[in-house]
């Protein structure tokens, strides 16, 4: 339990950062995890190839929502090119819990990143889950 739900995760889950919607976002993407019904929507504001603002909303388990919250913190001020290369290892590092052997929950953890990639690359052009 303590392994799976670090204090930090529960904190982000209960008080998510950058939660909500942007008015007239430059990019907006939404992804689902059909296995558990988790849903994340990301709105991005982009100025001169830099992400200047982000909001997310959605519903799902603590891990999916907390990871979205943590990811948004990272994204603000990040060049689009860097965001496109944001790796799953980097996100899992942030989340800081061992999920390598938990194939179901890792999908929850990576849903926000998948949404980001779908938004930046365009649906259908984003890397597969395994190559995030």
């Amino acid at each position: 339990m303590d392994d799976l739900y670090r204090e930090l995760i529960l904190e982000h889950y209960k008080h998510p950062h950058n939660h909500g919607r942007l008015e007239h976002p430059d990019i907006s993407a939404e992804e689902h995890n059909p296995l558990c019904g988790d849903r994340i929507r990301l709105d991005l504001r982009i100025e001169h190839d830099v992400i200047t603002d982000v909001r997310f909303d959605g519903r799902g388990c603590a891990i999916s929502q907390a990871s979205a919250s943590m990811l948004t913190d990272e994204l603000i001020g990040m060049p689009v090119e860097e965001a496109k290369r944001f790796s799953k290892e980097r996100l899992l590092d942030l989340i800081g819990i061992p999920l390598e052997h938990n194939p179901v929950r890792i999908k929850c953890a990576l849903l926000a990143l998948k949404t980001l990639k779908a938004g930046l690359y365009g649906v259908g052009h984003a890397p597969d889950d395994d190559d995030l």
């Binding site: 339990m1 799976l4 558990c36 799902g60």
Partner: peptide, 13 residues
């Protein structure tokens, strides 16, 4: 509370 979180909490018990 998402069912995954419920199940994970129960699993830890």
């Amino acid at each position: 509370v998402h069912p995954h979180d419920v199940a994970a909490a129960l699993d830890s018990e």
